[in-house]
Every structure is written in structure tokens, then in C-alpha cells.
């Protein structure tokens, strides 16, 4: 690969903790670089040596399948050594604090720590205590930057642009870090963001993040280019947010009747894992012509490769 085509100084940050505050230039750099990995990933011979000698440590305090696997694959493709730490075997279960865990791992000199934690801000706290680069793989309901980046890449490849598009994010906004990261990214790139959910699943003052809020799905979907569905995160819910799956699906589940309000070529996305018949009808999810859900997963590996490469390039500039 020709690294010279990419100016990594456009991303002047040590870590990737969130989308909020990143410039369109920095975001574009990651997206452009990721785009260049897509074709490579589709080839049989796809192993590179860009991160040869680097160690990537996956540290997941919260269960994950696709994100962890995606980072693992991304690290491997770039030639890094990838180590997985999962919570069930870690010392956190034995009462160690996040900071102590970070210090312990830091002593092993990893180059990149990929961290997921169920508390918002935990990844940032950890990042302050280590010498390596840290990628936030999801912290509570705060941010999930690589998900927003892979969504953006998917949109860009399908629609040719992000600027000027109308994107509806639908469902459990309240508990969603994916929604927050996407709002920041889409706004930075010039898209118009709408949120659609029952009022119980819309966090207070979210319109201050630069979105338009709809409680009626049909009105919210009108003339949208992108329909992004979110999973109902019942595991994060305490209390009564909606009465039943039946009612939720009736009013806020994506089916063809509601989808009709969006543009005819509107793209359907979902960060996964999907609950068929809850937030999305099966036939809509499987609609090859309109659903980009599988593609999102594919873009995930490319985006994470780009993130790892960019952060390691910055480490190299520091002489680390």
C-alpha cells in the first residue's frame, strides 16, 4: 500500500475516544484510508505488514462479538499481534478497579488498547493512565466512534457523499452510544439528522446536539435518504419505557408501510445485533436492494484497520 497518499497528521490525536470534537478533515482521512482497505479485504491474499511488531490489546469489560472480532481481524490483517482480554477472565471480576487494570496492562507495553466498558467515561479515564493509544470500542451510552465511522463509510460508498443527506436514526436513542457518535459524525460531515422514537427513549435536550426530533415515525421518515434503526437495549432499561414489543413494533418498528415515506432509494442500516420483529421487520432487514446491514459489518473491519494504522502512525511520529 502507498502510505504516502495519506497524510496522517490530519488526525492530530493520540487516542480515538469519541467522534465529538473531531474535524471533518480528520474524519475524512480515516474514511478515505478505510475505503482503500475495502478492496484489499475482499481479496484472498489480504495480509499486510503495516503494523508488524505492534501489539493491539482488546479489553472488553462488556460482552461483544462483532466489534471485538472486527478489531481482532483488523489488527491481524495489518500484521499486528492481537491479544484478547475478556472480562470473565480478567481481574476486574476479582475486584480490581479500571485504573489498576489499565496500569497493569500498561506495564506490558501494548501499542493500542481497544476498550469497551459499560460506564460512560471509563475509557477516557483509562486512557489518561496509559502510555499507549486507546480506541473507545463503546463506553456506556456515550460514544462508539468506530461504529459511526463504519456507518459513514457505508453511506459514502452507497450514496457517494454524506453532505446534504437526510438521515433518520430510529429507536432507543436514550441508551444508544451509536446514536450519539452518529449524530456528531453526520453533523460534522454536513448531513441533516432526525431522531425518531417515543418520548421515553429520547434523552433530554438532544436537539441541542443539532437534530430534529420526531415522535411520529411516518412523519420522521418522510423523504429520508438513510434510515438507521437501533436495537432496543432492554438490558440497559430499568423502569417502563414502552409497554410491549407489540406496541413498539406497531409504532416504531420499520416495516414497508412506514418505509414508504422515505425516499424510494433510501438505505436501511442497523448496527446490530438486530431484533427481528421488534425494531425491524424481517423482510425489510433482508431486502438485498435496500438493506446495507451486511455491508456495515464488512466496512467495520476496514474502518478499524484505518483507525489502528492512523493511531500507530502517530505513535511512530512520537518515536514510540
Amino acid at each position: 500500500m502507498n502510505d504516502g497518499a495519506f497524510d496522517f497528521s490530519a488526525y492530530p490525536h493520540r487516542h480515538l475516544l469519541g467522534i465529538e470534537g473531531l474535524s471533518p478533515v480528520a474524519l475524512s482521512l480515516i474514511l478515505d484510508r478505510a475505503d482503500s482497505f475495502v478492496e484489499l479485504n475482499r481479496r484472498h491474499e489480504n495480509k499486510l505488514a503495516i503494523l508488524s511488531g505492534r501489539t493491539v490489546m482488546n479489553l472488553f469489560f462488556e460482552d461483544s462479538t462483532r466489534t471485538r472480532t472486527s478489531f481482532e481481524l483488523a489488527g491481524n490483517r495489518l500484521g499486528a499481534d492481537v491479544i484478547n482480554m475478556s472480562v470473565s477472565t480478567s481481574s476486574i471480576k476479582k475486584g480490581e478497579t479500571v485504573v489498576d487494570t489499565a496500569m497493569t496492562l500498561n506495564a506490558m507495553h501494548p501499542d493500542v488498547l481497544v476498550v469497551r466498558h459499560n460506564d460512560a467515561g471509563a475509557v477516557k479515564l483509562l486512557a489518561e493512565k496509559v502510555n499507549c493509544a486507546v480506541i473507545n470500542a463503546g463506553d456506556g451510552r456515550h460514544e462508539h466512534p468506530t461504529q459511526a465511522l463504519l456507518d459513514a463509510l457505508t453511506i459514502r460508498r452507497r450514496k457517494g457523499k454524506i453532505q446534504g443527506l437526510t438521515v433518520a436514526i430510529c429507536g432507543d436513542i436514550l441508551h444508544s452510544r451509536v446514536a450519539r457518535s452518529n449524530i456528531h459524525l453526520l453533523n460534522a460531515m454536513g448531513a441533516r439528522v432526525r431522531l425518531i422514537a417515543p418520548k421515553t427513549l429520547i434523552p433530554a435536550n438532544i436537539e441541542r446536539l443539532g437534530v430534529e426530533v420526531f415522535y411520529d415515525m411516518q412523519a420522521g421518515l418522510k423523504d429520508c435518504d438513510i434510515v438507521m434503526m437501533l436495537r432496543l437495549q432492554t438490558e440497559r432499561m430499568s423502569g417502563s419505557f414502552f409497554p410491549s414489543i407489540r406496541e413498539y413494533f406497531h409504532f416504531f418498528g420499520l416495516d414497508y408501510a412506514k418505509l414508504e415515506k422515505a425516499k424510494p432509494d433510501a438505505l436501511i442500516m442497523h448496527p446490530g445485533p438486530m431484533n427481528r420483529g421488534v425494531e425491524i421487520a424481517s423482510d425489510v432487514a433482508d431486502d438485498i436492494g435496500r438493506s446495507a446491514i451486511r455491508e456495515q459489518v464488512e466496512m467495520g473491519v476496514a474502518v478499524r484497520m484505518a483507525c489502528l494504522e492512523v493511531l500507530c502512525a502517530n505513535l511512530a511520529l512520537e518515536g514510540a
Partner: peptide, 14 residues
Amino acid sequence: AQTMRQVLLYASTF
């Protein structure tokens, strides 16, 4: 109170 708050939010959705 939390239930009532959710009730009012949910009802006002519709």
C-alpha cells in the same frame, strides 16, 4: 414519580 414521568412522556408521544 419516575413511573408517572415515563407515563407522561410516553402518552405525549401520541
